[in-house]
Amino acid sequence: MTETTSKSERSELVDTIERYVRFWNPGADDAFTAETLVEDVEYCAPVGVLTGSAALVDFRRQFTDHMGSYEFRRRTAPDLHHDRARLSWELVTATGDSFAEGTDVLTVADDGRVRAVTVFLDRPPAGFDAHA
């Protein structure tokens, strides 16, 4: 955490990150999604660019349908400054195997909801082709 981010700003960013992590795990409902993401959130990942919270909910549903049970979790404490956060994450399958690791850079709106995400795959899933 940098000195340019106040204690209250850090606390708000940490709360946002915790909601964001919970959002990516199966079971988040519409009300929780609305608390976590702005309606027109921008999501830029190697698999594509998505706009809108409904698009992210659909993407999560498709991923859950494909993967079954999994856990999206933080690998380390997030790096924070101003309205930005860098989150290192891991996807773990129901059998406990690590599926993939990445880093998301979040931009947070004044109301504490995520307004933009840029995703980097640090260790993509086996067989992943970023150019496909």
Rank of each mutant, 00 (worst) to 15 (best):
T2I: 04
T2M: 06
E3R: 07
E3N: 11
E3D: 09
T4M: 06
S6T: 06
K7P: 10
R10Y: 02
S11A: 14
E12T: 10
D15V: 06
T16E: 04
T16H: 10
T16G: 01
I17G: 11
I17H: 05
I17D: 00
E18W: 02
E18N: 15
R19I: 06
Y20P: 14
W24G: 03
W24A: 03
W24Y: 10
N25S: 01
P26W: 06
A28D: 07
A28R: 07
A28Q: 06
A28V: 08
A31P: 13
A31I: 07
E35T: 11
T36Y: 12
L37M: 09
V38P: 15
V38M: 07
D40H: 09
D40V: 06
V41Y: 08
E42R: 11
Y43R: 05
A45P: 14
A45C: 09
P46V: 09
P46N: 11
V47I: 13
V47K: 08
V47D: 13
G48C: 06
V49N: 10
L50Y: 03
L50F: 13
L50W: 05
T51D: 09
G52R: 10
A55R: 04
L56W: 00
L56P: 12
D58T: 08
F59I: 02
F59Q: 12
R61I: 08
R61C: 06
R61E: 13
T64M: 04
D65W: 07
H66Q: 13
G68C: 01
S69N: 06
S69R: 15
Y70V: 07
Y70H: 13
E71V: 15
E71T: 15
F72S: 05
R73D: 00
R73K: 14
R74E: 14
R74N: 12
R75L: 15
T76L: 14
T76P: 15
P78C: 02
D79P: 12
L80Y: 15
H81C: 15
D83V: 11
R84S: 10
R84Q: 15
R84Y: 12
L87D: 01
S88K: 12
S88V: 09
S88M: 05
E90P: 13
T93E: 04
T93G: 05
T93V: 04
A94Y: 06
T95L: 03
T95M: 07
T95N: 13
D97L: 05
S98E: 11
F99N: 11
F99Q: 09
A100G: 02
G102K: 04
G102L: 02
T103C: 02
T103W: 00
D104M: 00
V105A: 02
T107Q: 10
A109T: 00
D110E: 05
G112R: 02
R113I: 09
V114P: 14
R115C: 15
R115H: 13
R115K: 13
R115F: 04
R115P: 09
T118R: 13
V119F: 01
F120Q: 00
F120H: 01
F120S: 00
D122Q: 08
D122S: 01
R123M: 05
P124K: 09
A126R: 09
G127P: 11
G127A: 01
G127M: 03
D129Q: 02
A130D: 11
A130M: 03
H131L: 07
A132L: 03
A132Q: 05
A132R: 02
